[in-house]
Design a protein around this nucleic acid. Structure first.
Length: 458
RNA sequence: GUGUGUGUAGCUCAGCUGGUUAGAGCACCGGAUUGUGGUUCCGGGGGUCGUGGGUUCAAGUCCCAUCACGCACCCCA
């Protein structure tokens, strides 16, 4: 028989893992709500027309497509199949795809329900997304994103609040983090300044790698992509720029003074920084001109968060998009949002041992099952204890004591109740503390108060 | 898409320059202990060595192919 398995890049989650994952999700959710964001959900699959062309050429390739139902080959002629033109054929046999992120479905949602939505619209969305990437460390084919976006407001206050959200989330999860801030308009300005405005994508992709591969390699890649020697020389002082935030801003302003885009980007970013410097923030944040971010739709601020001392890529990222809804027929609506990568956050917390150990046990009290008579005697007591809010279970069959105790032990249930023939006759119960091994006997009526007392002491 | 590594028990792995019947730890089941888990002792089940082909007297071990998985790059959460 074939060994059971799951597709690569996907994962099963055990009860222990789920408790931890839910801890992350609950933390994130509570912060989102704290800032006035409300949840929505969208379907796992979208029409391919919604998805295609939104993530660049690379992104399109990474979309999971869903085969049409029924006789999906009926509209295709034999000769057409022979041509091997995957793109035209796949358009005919597949009309749906799994969502690639949550931002594009959100844009679709906003346009579709524009008459019912009050703007600015603040929503959060925590759902899985799928990418047909090659999996590796910190990269999965199915993973959760926790998106929070506000659409219909151009105010930089939104950016500021998103950074506060980032700070709150990582503070609550105890993850030391580094927030990088940049602006696409500044990058455009730089491209204009060095005289390579049409090579903006190549430029940003290359300088994005600065930290990883070093300046020489970046310059090499730029030359390879066809940027002129002169342009690369002009770029050097900008990406090498160091010093205090204030100084960097003023020197950048001087350099990009002829670029309308550049100045706009600088002003926006300065506005954000101005707010931030007067607020209490635990995370480190900084302007990082090498931050580019791939997704095509960003037009203004861009934000990315990395966990300190861990090499796993970014754990949160986002930015402002001025015209995402334009493609769906609703132009001139600006939005800004960020996305937390729950799975990477999990990996980081795992590596740094940040999960509270206490999360393990869900059952607080287990009744050992001695037989039918005892079951009947115990059930009303269980009901009463459950009503008091204690997580309680009874072993479902009168298995050997050893098996039942092993079960309780493996499940890390802290207390076990024994009511057998002896106890029933005497109207007593035996309560065993699984941690200390000590057990005591008392009247049945005293069980509940005793248990409540035990748990409240902790 | 490019490069690279690994496939042996449910899991983690050992198995030397090819050599009899493929091992360990953990997990599981049973017993010591018919009303007591976590510690200890004894015993047990479980493997077409990823798959197919080749070299050889002989292949888990060497060669080729193939599949699967991992890591790095590209890109990204």
């Amino acid at each position: 028989m074939q060994k059971p398995s799951i597709p690569k890049g996907t994962r099963d989650f055990s009860p222990v893992e789920m408790v931890r994952r839910n801890y992350i999700f609950d933390t994130i959710k509570s912060v989102f709500q704290n800032y006035g964001y409300l949840p929505i959900e969208t379907p796992a699959m979208e029409n391919l027309s919604t998805l295609l062309g939104k993530y660049g050429e690379e992104g399109d390739k990474l979309l999971f497509k869903i085969l049409n139902s029924g006789n999906y080959l009926s509209g295709i002629k034999d000769e057409e199949l022979q041509t091997g033109k995957i793109n035209t054929i796949s358009r005919k046999i597949s009309e749906k795809g799994l969502r690639f992120d949550l931002t594009v479905p959100f844009a679709r949602y906003v346009v579709q329900y524009r008459n019912e939505i009050t703007f600015p619209f603040k929503r959060y969305q925590i759902q899985p997304v799928w990418r047909a990437d090659k999996p590796q460390k910190g990269r999965y084919r199915e993973f959760y994103q926790c998106d929070v976006d506000v659409i219909g407001s151009r105010s930089m206050l939104n950016e500021v609040e998103l950074i506060l959200i980032i700070d709150d989330v990582f503070d609550k999860l105890n993850i030391p983090s580094l927030v990088k801030i940049n602006n696409r308009k500044i990058l455009t300005g730089i491209a204009e300044y060095i005289g390579e405005a049409n090579k903006i994508t190549d430029l940003t992709v290359a300088i994005d790698k600065l930290e990883k591969v070093g300046l020489d390699n970046v310059n090499e890649e730029l030359a390879q992509k066809g940027l002129s020697r002169k342009a690369i020389d002009k770029l050097q002082p900008i990406i090498k720029m160091k010093g205090k935030l204030k100084e960097r801003f003023s020197s950048l302003k001087e350099t990009l003074k002829d670029s309308k885009n550049g100045i706009e980007g600088i002003n926006e970013t300065m506005t954000i920084m101005c707010y931030l410097k007067d607020l209490k923030i635990k995370a480190k944040f900084d302007l990082d001109l090498t931050l580019a971010r791939g997704l095509d739709y960003y037009t203004g601020s861009i934000i990315e968060v990395k966990a300190k001392d861990i090499n796993i890529g970014s754990i949160c990222g986002g930015g402002r998009y001025d015209d995402l809804t334009g493609i769906f027929g609703l132009p001139d609506i600006s939005g800004v949002g960020i996305s937390f990568g729950a799975d990477r956050i999990y990996d980081v917390m795992n590596e740094l041992n940040l999960f509270p150990e206490t999360q393990q046990a869900t059952t607080q009290l287990m009744f050992v099952n001695f037989g039918i008579e005892e079951e009947k005697y115990c059930m009303p007591i269980l009901q009463e204890i459950r009503k008091a809010g204690i997580n309680t279970e009874i072993f479902p069959e009168a298995a050997k004591m050893k098996k039942q105790m092993t079960y309780a032990n493996n499940k890390r249930i802290p207390y076990v109740v024994l009511i057998g023939e002896n106890e029933m006759q005497q109207g007593k119960v035996t309560l065993k503390n699984m941690e200390t091994g000590i057990q005591e006997q008392f009247e049945t009526g005293k069980l509940l108060p005793k248990i409540i007392e035990n748990f409240s002491n902790k």
